[in-house]
Amino acid sequence: MSDFDVAVIGAGPAGLSAALGLVRSRRTVLLIDSNRPRNAATLRSHGFLTRDGVPPLELRKLGREEFEGYPGATFHAGLVQGVQATPDGFRLSARGIRGASDLEATVGNIVVATGLIEKLPSVPSLRAWYGTDLHSCVECDGYEKRDAALALIGESDDLAERALLISQWSSDLIVFTNGVPAVTEAEQSALARRGVRIERRPIADVVGERGRMTGVLLADGETIPREAGFVRPEWTPAIAYLDGLGVRLDDSGLIAVDALGRTSVPGIYAAGDSTAPGPEQLIIAAGHGAQVAAALNRDLLGPLL
Rank of each mutant, 00 (worst) to 15 (best):
D250W: 06
E222I: 13
A290W: 01
A149F: 03
L134F: 09
L49W: 12
V207N: 01
D273N: 15
T275P: 10
R197S: 15
A85R: 15
Q291M: 14
L282W: 14
A11R: 08
I166P: 03
F75Y: 15
K61H: 12
L245D: 03
P13R: 09
G131H: 10
A286V: 02
V83D: 06
A204E: 15
V247G: 10
N35C: 05
D205Q: 01
D147L: 05
T50V: 02
A148V: 03
D102P: 07
F48A: 07
R51K: 10
P202Q: 00
A240H: 09
D33V: 02
L22T: 07
C140S: 09
V265Y: 07
V257S: 03
L134Q: 08
D158T: 07
R64C: 05
A182Q: 05
G12N: 06
D5S: 09
F75Q: 09
A190M: 11
P37F: 06
R26C: 08
N178T: 02
V83Y: 11
A192T: 02
G10V: 01
G99M: 07
L282F: 12
T50L: 06
A41F: 10
G47Q: 04
F176K: 08
E227S: 11
S2Y: 00
L134T: 01
D243E: 15
E234K: 14
A7T: 06
K61Q: 14
T106H: 07
L300I: 06
K119R: 15
S2C: 05
L296H: 03
G21T: 06
G47F: 04
N109Q: 14
L305C: 08
V216Q: 10
V6N: 05
E234P: 00
I283L: 11
C140H: 09
I153K: 12
G261Y: 05
E65K: 11
R248A: 15
R44F: 09
R27T: 07
L164S: 14
Q188T: 14
E58H: 13
L134N: 03
R200Q: 13
A240E: 14
L305E: 12
I198D: 08
L242W: 08
F67A: 00
I224A: 04
Q281E: 13
E227K: 12
S125V: 01
